[in-house]
């Protein structure tokens, strides 16, 4: 049996016996990414609605920037957040660097443009259908954004899930601002990078399996959610 095969076996064993270290790492990953996505949804969905419905100077610039930021390199975001949070940075007094909070901030920055840009498109589509009727009933733009957010709720799930996929998959940002400290800021992706370089393939592959399963689950949910959205559309 080759090294890879035996490592794969022990990886499967780690996953199915719910190894304590493994579970802790998965738990922290989920906590960080879910929090980041919650923050991104709270900012990104209303921002997407505002960009779709409101007309203000600089609107097009913001849209272009958001679309560009969808592909931000995680390490650059990590570096920027690092500079903000480091002792000498503007938010250094809070002492957040190398904590899960710092990782949540970095991932929120990374994911918010994705949620905002994708949900803007959803709002644009719904607004073209709803505009005349809502204006006719006397709904202001703020009210209209709320109405659309509610009516488009199932169509807004895929943007948020896309953000979640991005958050769980990235390494660079959490590595830089979290520092990959054992039992404190070690998440799935940073562990895989570390254990692989250490030659501990079992742990790396175990986490890899979990990450892939998670990604599958997210994409299956996106599919189911968009099916449901299409169904409720008529």
């Amino acid at each position: 049996m080759s090294d890879v095969e035996s490592a794969l076996l022990s990886a499967v064993r780690l996953v199915f016996t719910l190894d304590r270290d493994l579970a802790e790492i998965i738990g922290l990953s989920m906590r960080v990414s879910l929090s980041a996505v919650a923050v991104a949804a709270l900012i990104g969905v209303p921002l997407g609605g505002a960009l779709a419905l409101l007309r203000f100077p600089g609107r097009k610039t913001v849209i272009v920037l958001l679309n560009a930021f969808m592909g931000l390199p995680p390490v650059v975001v990590g570096l920027a957040v690092y500079l903000m949070l480091s002792r000498l940075g503007p938010m250094g007094v809070f002492g957040l660097l190398y904590s899960p909070a710092a990782m949540i901030i970095a991932q929120s920055v990374l994911v918010t443009p994705i949620v905002a840009a994708l949900s803007r498109q959803v709002f644009v589509d719904f607004w073209s259908e709803y505009e005349d009727q809502l204006r006719s009933l006397g709904a202001g733009r703020g009210r209209a954004i709320l109405t659309l957010a509610w009516d488009a709720r199932s169509s807004l799930v895929p943007p948020v899930l896309a953000g979640f996929g991005r958050a769980t998959a990235e390494v660079g940002a959490v590595m830089i601002v979290g520092g990959n400290i054992d039992h404190v800021t070690r998440v799935m992706t940073t562990t895989i990078a570390l254990e692989t370089s250490k030659g501990n393939l079992a742990m790396a592959m175990g986490l890899g399996i979990v990450l892939v399963l998670l990604s599958l689950a997210v994409n299956a949910s996106v599919f189911i959610a968009s099916e449901a959205a299409a169904k409720s559309g008529r």
Binding site: E129, Y130, D132, Q133, R135, S136, L137, G138, T147, D151, S232, G233
Partner: peptide, 18 residues
């Protein structure tokens, strides 16, 4: 904008998803 006390029904009814 759209004055009060008058409303309109469109050719294709737009139903909210509720």
């Amino acid at each position: 904008e759209v004055p009060k006390h008058q409303t309109m029904v469109f050719q294709r009814p737009m139903m909210l998803r509720r």
